[in-house]
Amino acid sequence: MSILDYFSAILLAGGVFFSFTGAIGLFRFPDFFTRVHAASVTDTIGVILIIAGLLLQTSFDLNIIKLLLILAILLLTSPTASHALAKSARHGGLLTLAESNRSNDR
């Protein structure tokens, strides 16, 4: 294994770690907004690390450009989707955990 392979392995492992924590957060977090937050960790840092790891695995050819395009599209669309989801929930009248606790205390 060359030095690039080690770097690639570290980056891929990091990507897997963040995707995995995102998935756990999706199940374990208490309310909608924290869950969206956990899911969007998978979309952003997980994807960046995995694609960076894959970039180190390819030889210098067209695949690099394809991977970078995939990264650009994902970084543009995934946060937008999370934003639209959270905003629609807010628009529909869903309160965060802190807010609903406060209204319960009163």
């Binding site: 599209i73 543009l76 937008t80 905003k87």
Partner: peptide, 18 residues
């Protein structure tokens, strides 16, 4: 449409040509 979603409008305008 989704008039309130300014971010969606901008991003949709960017990616639809692509």
């Amino acid at each position: 449409g989704l008039a309130k979603h300014r971010v969606l409008h901008v991003v949709a305008k960017i990616i639809i040509p692509f």
